[in-house]
Design a protein around this nucleic acid. Sequence first.
DNA 1: ATGCCTTGCTTAGCAAGA
Length: 259
Amino acid sequence: MQLATWNVNSLGVRLPHVLEWLAEHPVDVLALQELKLPDEKFPAEALREAGYHAVWLGQKTYNGVALLSRAEPQDVVRHIPGFPDEQSRAIAATYPLPDGSTVRVVGCYFPNGQAPGSDKFAYKMRWLDALHRWVQEELTRHPQLALMGDYNITFDDADVWDPDGLRETIHCTTEERQHLQRLVALGLHDAHRLFEQPPKSYSWWDYRMLGFQKNRGLRIDHILVTDALKARATGCTIDRAPRKKPQPSDHAPVVLTLG
DNA sequence: ATGCCTTGCTTAGCAAGA
């Protein structure tokens, strides 16, 4: 049983990569971010042919999230309830597990935030507040929950290729990291850190300046899990292989394996 | 560094990403 998350930076461009990756890695649930296409252009048929159900929340040009799954999704929620948002950033669904229990999957594309002090940063903070309230409420009903996606926040310096040069810049500010810790304090665990990882493990690399080749990256794509899922987790990896292909997304998939 | 890439929208140059 595997859950994965991947910011594809345009599903229109990256659909072949997604299909190839799923053929090699037939995960049970794949959360996608940055679809960059409206609902009516979502490639549901191609994904169905690949054996995947899909639920999605599209948006023209920007944002957009989806959940692909082997099993049929239940109790689908689009957008953070009680947080009217013109930007399509959140989707949730429930899936059956082989033992008869269920897993609640919340897939999110957190706002970038641009720079501390900007309007976009203020929106990021409001969005994070709303997400916290929503996840807290979801946890009352779902002991097995995974919150995964492009968080656009690093946990600490170990997630940053140049922590001194990027100190208190976007993705690395104390304020953003405090929000991330508030989510953790709800009783969640960073799945990546549950396991031994290679040094300098990142999930995003800038397209410019040979960022990937020099491993100048950030770990900003995360899977947070509840105690019950932590107990079942047997591995969590970042798959750098798709980042090496021609015309890649700037993000790599993150994969959680559950026993 | 004011950009460096990439994408979408619109059709050459922005906006936005991170």
